[in-house]
């Protein structure tokens, strides 16, 4: 397996994440899209770590940090979603368009 195969896989993940973010209406599925993007970045880091990095520990540490931050991000986003849901009884991103102009 060559390096660019991994990069292309991660690119597909990234693009799929973008599609999810841009087209889905449910905020939870949009969060899924963001997770896909983060994973794409993680794959890149691991692949580069394996093939090009000077010190092969770096990539792993980076990916661990990313996993940790993703967990934190999800926690906060879901809690905000709870408030949103309580205030509106809806999590449709196309319905929350009151602030504009």
């Amino acid at each position: 397996m060559s390096l660019s195969a991994f990069l292309l896989v991660s690119l597909v993940l990234f693009s799929a994440g973008l599609v999810a973010i841009m087209s889905r209406r449910n905020l939870v599925t949009i969060l899924v899209g963001i997770e896909l993007m983060l994973n794409a970045a993680s794959i890149n880091f691991m692949a580069f770590n394996y093939y090009t990095a000077v010190d092969p520990v770096v990539g792993q540490i980076i990916v661990l940090v990313i996993i940790g931050l993703a967990a934190a991000e999800v926690a906060i986003f879901l809690s905000i979603l709870m408030v949103l849901y309580r205030a509106r009884h809806d999590v449709d991103v196309e319905e929350i368009r009151e602030i504009r102009g």
Binding site: F14, L27, L38, A41, F77, I80, R88, I96
Partner: peptide
């Protein structure tokens, strides 16, 4: 209002930081 603002800001912020990471 607060939840709408926060959701949108965080959504854009998360996408931006994911792009940065990439």
């Amino acid at each position: 209002m607060g939840s709408e603002g926060a959701t949108k800001y965080m959504l854009q912020g998360m996408v931006a930081s994911a792009v940065t990471l990439y």
